[in-house]
Amino acid sequence: MTFENAALYRDITDFAHDTPMWVQHGARTWTEAGLLVFVALFVAGWWRARRDSPHAFAIAALAPLATAVAYVCSEVLKSAVTEERPCRAVAGAAVSLAACPPHGDWSFPSNHATIAGASAVALALVRRTLLWLTAPLALLMAFSRVFVGVHYPHDVLAGLGLGTLVTLAAVRLGTAPMTRLAGAMRTWSAPAVRWVMGPGPAPIVSYETPVRR
């Protein structure tokens, strides 16, 4: 931790205490429940992909899986770095708006920021226009972790970067095999599997004008 990073953390947490109570309450709610928005978007992406090509379905299925891989990578890195939370380590800082996690729940990188970054990128790969929604949500999630006092700024920046890189790599490596699997599973007769996979794109019906003789 650098002096500049601790100073920025203090500046942000001091600012948080100067905001209205409804802002503080909203930040506490968003920083924990905001990830559910990404879950809902994953479900919507899967539902839409059920009537799309195997390739599109593969990316929609990989999106939450890639995010889960990013989370595991974040946990592994946390265990290796073992950085103490700023709500205990930074002297003279304002009391955190959220409960300070217990010792052993390390700070670097931020799991929430990692998941948010991974989700934002994964959903943008499912549907490019979603980036206009998911990127601001991910940045808001990352900032909220510093705002409520449980992470340093560098924790959330690292989390966003880690989530992005892991997701891009996971989707790139997994798309081809997942596409083949999705195409094969759509031919299965099991009702549950067929419902999960969906019917795929509707067949193109060609209407030809009969030739008069």
Rank of each mutant, 00 (worst) to 15 (best):
residue 1 M to N: 09
residue 1 M to P: 14
residue 2 T to I: 08
residue 5 N to E: 14
residue 7 A to P: 05
residue 10 R to I: 06
residue 13 T to D: 01
residue 16 A to I: 05
residue 20 P to F: 11
residue 23 V to H: 05
residue 27 A to C: 04
residue 28 R to P: 06
residue 29 T to Y: 10
residue 31 T to L: 00
residue 35 L to D: 07
residue 37 V to Y: 08
residue 37 V to H: 07
residue 38 F to C: 11
residue 39 V to D: 12
residue 40 A to E: 07
residue 41 L to K: 00
residue 45 G to R: 07
residue 47 W to L: 14
residue 50 R to Y: 06
residue 50 R to K: 12
residue 53 S to P: 05
residue 56 A to R: 09
residue 58 A to Y: 04
residue 59 I to Q: 08
residue 62 L to W: 11
residue 65 L to A: 13
residue 67 T to K: 03
residue 71 Y to G: 07
residue 73 C to M: 14
residue 75 E to K: 08
residue 81 V to Q: 00
residue 86 P to T: 04
residue 87 C to S: 02
residue 90 V to N: 03
residue 91 A to C: 02
residue 95 V to P: 10
residue 96 S to G: 11
residue 102 P to L: 07
residue 112 H to S: 03
residue 114 T to D: 01
residue 115 I to R: 05
residue 119 S to Y: 06
residue 120 A to T: 10
residue 120 A to S: 11
residue 122 A to V: 04
residue 123 L to F: 00
residue 124 A to H: 06
residue 127 R to W: 12
residue 128 R to H: 13
residue 133 L to C: 06
residue 134 T to S: 04
residue 137 L to S: 02
residue 146 V to G: 01
residue 150 V to D: 01
residue 150 V to P: 01
residue 151 H to S: 08
residue 155 D to G: 12
residue 155 D to Q: 11
residue 157 L to M: 12
residue 177 P to V: 09
residue 180 R to P: 09
residue 181 L to N: 07
residue 190 A to L: 13
residue 190 A to Y: 12
residue 197 M to R: 10
residue 199 P to N: 14
residue 200 G to A: 03
residue 203 P to N: 13
residue 212 R to I: 09
